[in-house]
């Protein structure tokens, strides 16, 4: 076990992170709920020690749950990359006047992150778009870019139903991945096409080790 603050404390801190007010379907904006974000980060730190004192990228950082969580867990430095300025505005509200936060967010397309950043980060964390709606394949584009950016490990959430596809995509690039946790995404009905009031989606937390 690597040192880490208590899971309950982390989850409480992340409870205060506000979600998307008007999620954009074309960007597949689903929040990373505090429960999911805190479990993900807690597992990454306690089991692998991949957050504290590390340089971290959060791809598709949205409203900042993972960026803020990683900074709270004493990452050496975090950079969030997010394409949507409205999501970044919510992130800015979330951090408020918190000067101590050791993080930057860059407004850019994850697919055009400069190559100077290749192998710059010790750890990449992300809750990428699932690549389902109008966005087919975007999840694998995020994953591929993450492999280039990280020199240590990549942690990523994917629908359990796509597990084989994720592992195959990684293997094609010579990267070995494993599922280190199975989580449940209790997704509030954010969009009109969700008929139920909330939808449970099974998701895998993957860990990929870079060579």
């Amino acid at each position: 076990m690597f040192p880490c603050m208590k899971l309950r404390v982390l989850e409480e801190l992340l409870q205060d992170v506000t979600d998307f007010t008007k999620p954009k379907i074309n960007l597949e904006q689903y929040v990373t709920p505090p429960h999911l974000a805190s479990h993900m980060l807690y597992t990454i730190q306690t089991q692998y020690g991949d957050i504290k004192d590390k340089s971290i990228a959060d791809l598709g950082s949205g409203c900042g749950a993972l960026t803020i969580g990683a900074a709270v867990l004493e990452a050496a430095f975090v950079i969030g990359f997010e394409i949507d300025p409205d999501a970044i505005d919510i992130y800015l509200d979330n951090i408020g006047d918190e000067d101590m936060l050791n993080a930057d967010v860059i407004c850019c397309d994850v697919r055009s992150i400069p190559s100077r950043f290749d192998k710059f980060f010790d750890t990449v964390i992300m809750n990428p778009p699932f690549g389902t709606k109008h966005n087919q394949g975007i999840d694998m584009q995020f994953l591929t870019r993450a492999f280039e950016l990280s020199r240590g490990a990549v942690y990523s959430l994917h629908k359990t139903s796509t597990r084989k596809h994720v592992l195959k995509t990684a293997k094609l690039q010579g990267v070995v991945g494993e599922v280190i946790a199975e989580l449940r995404y209790d997704l509030p009905a954010s969009y009109k096409f969700h008929k139920k009031s909330s939808v449970d989606i099974n998701v895998d937390l993957f860990r990929f080790e870079m060579n």
Binding site: P85, L92, V105, I106, C107, C108
Partner: peptide
């Protein structure tokens, strides 16, 4: 703005 560099390009710039 507010510490966030906006590197988004227009379609005709890429």
């Amino acid at each position: 703005n507010n510490g966030i560099p906006n590197m988004i390009l227009n379609e005709d710039e890429v």
